[in-house]
């Protein structure tokens, strides 16, 4: 756990350093001005949200095949963090949209599919809190995760497949970004890795301990009777 604590510390320091890159190093875009710099947070959040849901999806499949609760825990924790990242992606996107499109929200394919994804995982988190046997909860959750993940490729390709006002950043080579912009966005993507991995590790350990404690309590109650 200590290595994750160091990793989290590096993540926070990198997040602070990314401020310098965003405000000073990366050039200001001509049409959108400073508002375009929201992109340096928005894109890493969205990408790590996809990674998170992908880990959750793979773990859910593994759970259904192997019936090992470790996979269920990993799937649940990854979906929880993915939900946080999806929320932040929507919030930062909305602020950026207000600045560049003049509206907080529009029913654009990219935005709508992302909102659908957010609702699916919100429902998933509600299901996780419902009182039911652990195995049943794990199976239901795995099915929701697998179905929910089908929306991720839709979100990713929506800006390319349908007429969307949302830019598909790396659709063309380099995405029309200057070198400094690319460096900054890569740094921000890596920074979020240092935040995502420790969060995942801490929460996973916590859920594992919680389940062990529940087992112990049940055993004690059983022995009492």
């Amino acid at each position: 756990m200590k290595k994750y604590a160091y990793m989290a510390l590096i993540g926070v320091l990198c997040l602070a350093f990314s401020q310098f890159l965003i405000y000073d190093y990366a050039p200001t875009e001509r049409t959108m001005g400073y508002a375009q710099k929201i992109f340096y947070y928005h894109l890493p959040l969205a990408w790590w949200c996809f990674v998170s849901f992908f880990i959750s999806f793979v773990s859910a499949i593994l759970y259904l095949f192997k019936k090992n609760m470790c996979y269920d825990r990993l799937s649940a924790v990854s979906a929880e963090i993915g939900f946080l990242l999806a929320t932040l992606t929507l919030v930062t996107g909305s602020i950026w949209g207000r600045q560049s499109w003049g509206v907080w929200w529009t029913w654009d394919p990219r935005l709508t599919t992302t909102l659908v994804l957010w609702f699916i995982y919100a429902a998933y988190l509600v299901v996780r809190t419902m009182a039911m046997p652990n195995e049943k909860r794990a199976a239901v959750s795995a099915v929701i995760t697998i179905i929910g993940f089908l929306d991720v490729p839709l979100v990713f390709f929506s800006a390319r497949l349908w007429r969307s006002i949302h830019p598909a950043v790396f659709a063309s080579k380099g995405g029309g970004l200057e070198a400094e912009m690319v460096h900054t966005v890569i740094f921000c993507v890596l920074t979020f890795a240092f935040i995502y991995i420790p969060l995942l590790a801490f929460r996973l350990k916590q859920v594992q301990q919680l389940q062990s404690m529940e087992t112990l309590r049940t055993r004690m109650l059983y022995e009492e009777n």
Binding site: Q19, I22, M32, G33, Y34, A35, K37, I38, Y41, H42, L45, I81, L84, T87, L88, V91, T92, I95, W96, R98, Q99, I195, L199
Partner: peptide, 19 residues
């Protein structure tokens, strides 16, 4: 634009902090 960038920044720190 500067305010928008600041609000987005605050949202991220608040979100991660809250978690």
């Amino acid at each position: 634009a500067i305010q928008a960038l600041t609000y987005a920044n605050i949202a991220i720190w608040l979100g991660i902090g809250a978690y």
